Amino acid sequence: MAVSDGAAFRRVLDGLGLAIVGGDVPPGSDDTVDRIVERTGASRSVVREATRVLVSLGMLTAGRRVGLRVRPRDEWDLLDPQVIRWRLESPDREAQLADLLGLRLVVELEAAARAAAHSTPRETAELRATAQALAGATAARDRDGFFEADRRFHGTVLRLAGNAMLARLAGVVDEALRERVPDDHLRWSVASSGVELHSAVADAIAAGDSDGAARLMRRIVDPGASTRAPQGRAHRVAMVESPPGMGGSSASVSAPIDE
């Protein structure tokens, strides 16, 4: 696909995806390739390719007689990073943030605990190096470097859990991390506090401390958790609802952590 076609494809795909996610085109609505071509000014090949992607994501059905039809949200691939990004850019943003936080509270805490049980010294050295890279990017206020180091850290924890299905969720976690890349003085200050927690998670995993790794990861994923009522591990795994956002906790790593 040529560069110009690639730009047109992205424009058409994002436009259709956002229209569906935002409710401008509700479930059950019908459309055709010809009408989309007319509306967007894109070529038929570009529109066909964009609709194929939406069909693969469970957002559209395609048939000769009915054309294109929007499917209900519970049939969408809600774990696909593209769908997540569209939801974050839509009126559904707050619900998507809450969904991401709930998923991370279930998945990343367990991944940290499993990583502590399974990781080798070489793997934990890699994790510690990534935590150091995150610290360096934070000190330099390098947004791109921060995101890259943050996504590598969390992706590495998922991989070290020793479960291929957990590792496949790295793309979902990436979208949550993209949302919290600092962009002002206050958020950089909060990020600086979180850097110590990343190093502490790496240390707990290296020490084989599953409970400690999970507790510390919870403070990264949900910064306000340490100020709420004590949570046992069984409750922590079951918990799927918590307010979205960065939070404002700046407790040091050495502060007591309730369990």
Rank of each mutant, 00 (worst) to 15 (best):
residue 13 L to A: 07
residue 53 V to S: 05
residue 68 L to N: 04
residue 120 T to E: 00
residue 36 I to C: 06
residue 80 D to W: 11
residue 85 R to K: 10
residue 14 D to Y: 15
residue 91 P to F: 11
residue 77 D to M: 11
residue 37 V to R: 11
residue 57 L to K: 15
residue 70 V to H: 00
residue 64 R to V: 13
residue 31 D to T: 12
residue 30 D to Q: 09
residue 80 D to R: 13
residue 126 E to A: 14
residue 67 G to F: 12
residue 20 I to W: 03
residue 23 G to W: 07
residue 125 A to V: 13
residue 110 E to D: 00
residue 24 D to M: 15
residue 14 D to M: 14
residue 81 P to A: 14
residue 40 T to K: 11
residue 80 D to L: 12
residue 114 R to T: 07
residue 66 V to T: 12
residue 11 R to C: 06
residue 98 A to C: 08
residue 97 L to Y: 03
residue 34 D to M: 11
residue 31 D to H: 14
residue 35 R to G: 04
residue 33 V to A: 07
residue 29 S to L: 10
residue 36 I to N: 01
residue 65 R to P: 01
residue 41 G to L: 07
residue 108 E to Q: 09
residue 71 R to A: 07
residue 115 A to C: 04
residue 51 T to H: 10
residue 78 L to V: 05
residue 81 P to N: 10
residue 55 V to L: 09
residue 45 S to R: 13
residue 89 E to L: 06
residue 11 R to I: 06
residue 12 V to E: 06
residue 114 R to S: 01
residue 56 S to H: 15
residue 72 P to N: 07
residue 92 D to R: 14
residue 47 V to Q: 06
residue 117 A to P: 02
residue 124 T to K: 14
residue 116 A to H: 04
residue 116 A to P: 01
residue 62 A to D: 04
residue 26 P to E: 11
residue 37 V to P: 04
residue 14 D to R: 15
residue 40 T to Y: 09
residue 126 E to L: 15
residue 95 A to M: 04
residue 35 R to E: 03
residue 117 A to R: 13
residue 70 V to D: 00
residue 92 D to K: 12
residue 42 A to R: 08
residue 89 E to T: 05
residue 54 L to E: 03
residue 33 V to I: 13
residue 79 L to W: 14
residue 91 P to K: 12
residue 78 L to P: 02
residue 73 R to D: 01
residue 123 E to T: 14
residue 61 T to Y: 09
residue 83 V to C: 05
residue 83 V to H: 04
residue 96 Q to S: 05
residue 45 S to I: 07
residue 112 A to T: 07
residue 56 S to L: 10
residue 23 G to S: 15
residue 121 P to Y: 13
residue 24 D to F: 14
residue 20 I to G: 02
residue 74 D to Q: 12
residue 83 V to K: 02
residue 87 R to S: 01
residue 33 V to F: 09
residue 83 V to Y: 06
residue 123 E to R: 11
residue 80 D to H: 14
residue 93 R to E: 00
residue 86 W to K: 05
residue 19 A to I: 12
residue 12 V to A: 05
residue 115 A to P: 02
residue 100 L to W: 08
residue 47 V to H: 14
residue 65 R to D: 06
residue 44 R to C: 00
residue 40 T to F: 12
residue 110 E to L: 08
residue 76 W to N: 00
residue 51 T to M: 09
residue 71 R to F: 11
residue 55 V to K: 12
residue 9 F to G: 05
residue 101 L to V: 08
residue 125 A to Q: 09
residue 62 A to V: 12
residue 17 G to Y: 09
residue 95 A to I: 06
residue 74 D to C: 10
residue 85 R to P: 00
residue 14 D to H: 15
residue 98 A to G: 04
residue 86 W to L: 00
residue 65 R to E: 01
residue 15 G to M: 13
residue 100 L to K: 05
residue 26 P to Y: 14
residue 107 V to D: 03
residue 27 P to W: 04
residue 42 A to T: 07
residue 12 V to W: 10
residue 11 R to G: 09
residue 94 E to N: 11
residue 28 G to E: 03
residue 28 G to C: 11
residue 68 L to T: 08
residue 118 H to V: 02
residue 68 L to R: 07
residue 108 E to V: 05
residue 22 G to T: 10
residue 14 D to C: 12
residue 75 E to R: 15
residue 45 S to L: 02
residue 125 A to M: 11
residue 122 R to F: 08
residue 51 T to E: 01
residue 97 L to A: 08
residue 34 D to E: 09
